[in-house]
C-alpha cells in the first residue's frame, strides 16, 4: 500500500449497487404488497435478505480493512464525522414526529375544540367534541377507534426508562474498560447492555399488547394513538437495531478486535445507543408523562 500518511481510498466496490438493488426491492415490494400483491411480499423479503447480505458484506470488508491497519487517523475521523452527522439526521427524523405531537396537542386539538381563531370550527363542525389531552375522544367517532384508556407513565414506561438509563451506564463502563484494555470488563459491560436492551424491548412488546387488547389504544385511535405508536414504534425499531449492532460489537470484542487507540466501531455504536437513550427520555417526558 501507499505510505502511511496517505488517505485510504478503496478501489471499486460492488456493495453499493447491491444495496441499491436491495433497497429498491424492499421498498417496491412493500408498496405493492400494501395493495394485496403477493409477489410484492416476496420481493420485499428478497430485498430484506439482499440488504442484510450487503450490510454484512460491506461491514465485513470495512472490519477487514480496519484490522489490516490501512486506516489512519484521518480515515478514522471521517468515520466519526460520518456517524455523528448520521445521528444528527436521525434526530431530525424524530423531530418531525415530535413536532407532529407538539402541533397536534397544542394547536390542532384545541382548535378543533374551538379555541383561538377557530371559534367556528368548534361551534359549527364539532359541537360535541371536547378538547382534552390525552385525546381519548376523537372528533368523529364513526371513523376512528375510541380507546378506553392510556398507558400511564409511572408503570412499564418508568421501568423502561430505568432500563435504558442503566444500559447507558453499563455501556460507558464497558467503554472505560476498553480504554484501559480490560477485556473481561468490556464483555461484561456489553452483555449487560444487551440484556437491558432486550428487557426494554420485551416490556415494550408487553405494553403494546396491553394497549391493543385491553385498552383499545391502536394506530387507529385518532391522533393520540397515531403519535403514540409512531414515536414509540420508531424508537423501538432503533433499539432493535442498536441491540443487533451491540451484539456484533460484542462478537468483535470476543475476537479480540479493538484496542485503546483504535475502536471507532465500538464508539460509533455507543453513540448510537446513547442517542436512542436520549430520544427515549424525550418520549418518556412528552409522550407518557406530561
Amino acid at each position: 500500500m501507499q505510505s502511511n500518511n496517505q488517505y485510504f481510498v478503496p478501489h471499486g466496490s460492488y456493495w453499493p449497487i447491491v444495496g441499491s438493488v436491495g433497497m429498491a426491492s424492499l421498498l417496491g415490494g412493500f408498496a405493492s404488497s400494501l395493495h394485496g400483491n403477493v409477489l410484492g411480499t416476496g420481493l420485499m423479503v428478497l430485498g430484506l435478505v439482499i440488504i442484510i447480505f450487503m450490510v454484512f458484506g460491506w461491514m465485513g470488508q470495512v472490519v477487514l480493512e480496519s484490522e489490516s491497519g490501512i486506516y489512519n487517523k484521518q480515515v478514522d475521523r471521517s468515520f466519526r464525522m460520518g456517524m455523528g452527522w448520521f445521528i444528527f439526521s436521525e434526530v431530525m427524523f424524530f423531530a418531525a414526529f415530535f413536532g407532529a405531537l407538539w402541533y397536534a396537542r397544542n394547536l390542532a386539538v384545541p382548535w378543533l375544540g374551538g379555541e383561538g381563531n377557530n371559534f367556528f370550527t368548534g361551534q359549527v363542525l364539532w359541537p360535541d367534541f371536547k378538547a382534552v389531552w390525552p385525546l381519548i375522544q376523537v372528533p368523529d367517532v364513526s371513523k376512528y377507534t375510541v380507546p378506553k384508556g392510556i398507558i400511564h407513565a409511572w408503570e412499564i414506561p418508568a421501568i423502561n426508562t430505568l432500563a435504558l438509563l442503566t444500559s447507558g451506564a453499563t455501556l460507558t463502563w464497558a467503554h472505560w474498560a476498553l480504554l484501559n484494555n480490560k477485556r473481561n470488563q468490556i464483555i461484561a459491560g456489553l452483555i449487560a447492555t444487551i440484556v437491558l436492551g432486550v428487557i426494554f424491548l420485551a416490556l415494550q412488546v408487553a405494553e403494546y399488547g396491553e394497549a391493543y387488547q385491553h385498552l383499545d389504544l391502536k394506530l387507529t385511535s385518532g391522533i393520540y394513538g397515531s403519535t403514540f405508536f409512531m414515536l414509540t414504534g420508531f424508537h423501538g425499531l432503533h433499539v432493535t437495531l442498536g441491540t443487533i449492532m451491540l451484539i456484533v460489537i460484542l462478537m468483535r470484542v470476543i475476537r479480540g478486535h479493538f484496542n485503546p487507540e483504535n475502536h471507532f466501531g465500538f464508539e460509533g455504536v455507543a453513540w448510537y445507543w446513547h442517542f436512542v437513550d436520549v430520544v427515549w427520555l424525550g418520549l418518556f417526558i412528552f409522550v407518557y408523562w406530561l
Binding site: L34, A100, Y103, A104, L107, A108, V109, W111, L112, L125, L135, V138, P139, D140, K143, Y144, K218, L219, T220, S221, G222, I223, Y224, G225, S226, T227, F229, M230
Partner: peptide, 14 residues
C-alpha cells in the same frame, strides 16, 4: 395504509 390520523381532523389531526 395503517389508519393513523395525522392529517385528518376527524381523528384530531390537521
Amino acid at each position: 395504509n395503517f389508519g393513523t390520523s395525522f392529517f385528518d381532523a376527524a381523528g384530531g389531526g390537521d
